[in-house]
Each structure stands twice: as C-alpha cells, then as structure tokens.
Amino acid sequence: MALLEIRGLVKRFLGVTAVDAVDLTVERGELVSLIGPNGSGKTTLFNCVTGYLASDAGHVAFDGRTVTRAAPHRVARLGISRTFQQVSVFGRLTALENLLVFLQQHQEEDFFARLVRTRRVRRLEADAIARARTLLDLVGLGARADAPAGSLSYGQRKLLAFAAALMPDPELLLLDEPAAAVNPTMINQMKDHILGLHRQGKTVLLVEHNMDVVMDVSQRIVVLDHGQKIAEGTPDAIRRDPRVIEAYFGR
C-alpha cells in the first residue's frame, strides 16, 4: 500500500481550477518531486492534503486512512509534517522553543502528570530538548538556540522551519520550496539535508523550483501545469519529455 494516495483531487477557486483531478501516490521511503510553473497548483495540492483547504472532489489517504476532511492539526498528528513556502516560525518563541512546540502535541497530554512534573514528564522534556538541540546543530543553528526566532535571518528562519518539521520524526514530509530565495551555499545544504532524510528511509514529497536540486535528489518527478498532471517519471524521462519542455519554455 502506498503511504500517500491522492485520487482525483480537485480544488477550485472562483473561476480557476487550481488542482484539476490529480492522481498522485508516494510509496513508503520514496522521494518524489512535484514541479510545475508558478500558479500550477503545487501549494494548493499541499494545502488540500494537509487539511488547510477543503477539496471539492477526490480522496486522500495516508497510510490507508482517509484524511480528506481532516483538520490540519489532525493530519499533523497522524505523522505528516509540512513546511510552508512563505517562511514561517513562531517569532516570539526562541529557536529551541519553536522545535519543542512541534514535538509536544505528539505526546500524550496527561495534565496532572505535567502539573506535578513527575519523573517521566521531566524525562520526556529532557529528551525533547536533547532532540531539539541535535536538530538545531544539524541545520547549523546550535548557537542561536535561545534567540527569538523573529530575530533570525531569512535563511536561518527557513532552516529553523525545516528542522521544526523534522522534530516529531514524521513518516511523511511535504516540503514547499525549501531551497527558494536562499543563497547557493544554503541550497546545497538543503539538498544534503533532503538526501539525508531519504537515506534514513523517510518519505518525502518535494515542491521545488530549483531544477538542479530536483534532478539530483528525486527518484520520481510529477509535473503539474494549470492544475493538471501532465507528466510523471524519472528525472531523465522528465528532462526529455516534450510536454514538460513545452510547459516550462514553450510560452
């Protein structure tokens, strides 16, 4: 069974069909890229899958469970993490706290145990902090752990948002243009991070405009144009596909 299975997904906005009957499956452990010109519906598809937008038709299943009508926080708790195209952090929380937020809802609530701070609760929190520090080190933000996220540079916030998405150790990661609008060094870093995730066996669905990144990391590429899936295949096949060339360069 595919980890993510999207069937006939449709999303219309006034006058525009942003996502037009798209089928897309991602197998467990796969690294799939979703590409297409600006406005082709990639972000909208992410928003439908993660519950931020209600789709007009179609079906989305994650690990065999229907998530078509689920609210965003429920989708997240099932094990789907996503990043946002517009870089997005909790500005007044520190970098470390930003990551802690992403783990805590995945742990049981147990209000009274938390209130009296049982040994188990204290251990959970210590583990969370250790994990957060490891991830901050991974993205090179270890020294900024206690800085308010709002005070970080654009690139740093982007890395922080990426690390935050990893915090709950999600089964599926949806990354919306992680390498956009950052400097070349960071693009390479980001590429390495994504490949690292893949090597760890994580399932990744990547939206990215940087073709070097997409061609280097993807096992399979899905191409959207005007909300429709126009091609699907290996990087080599996609590179040579006339419909893709047309969509990207033909106007």
């Binding site: 993660t50 519950g51 931020y52 609210a71 965003p72 926080h73 997240a76 708790r77 993490s81 996503r82 946002f84 997005s88 952090v89 909790f90 500005g91 007044r92 929380l93 706290e97 802690l100 937020v101 992403f102 805590q104 809802q105 995945h106 938390r114 948002a161 935050a164 998405a165 709950p168």
Partner: peptide
C-alpha cells in the same frame, strides 16, 4: 511549560501551530 508554549504558538502563528498538531 507545555501549555504556555501551545498558547504562544497559537498567538505567534496560528497556521504554523496547526501544522505542529495544535488545534488553535
């Protein structure tokens, strides 16, 4: 603690909070 962080996450960025599993 945990509750306060959830409150502050909702305050700072409701959309992002939902992606962290928080019901704003």
């Amino acid at each position: 603690f945990r509750l306060g962080r959830a409150f502050h996450a909702v305050r700072d960025n409701e959309v992002l909070a939902a992606s962290a599993g928080i019901d704003p």
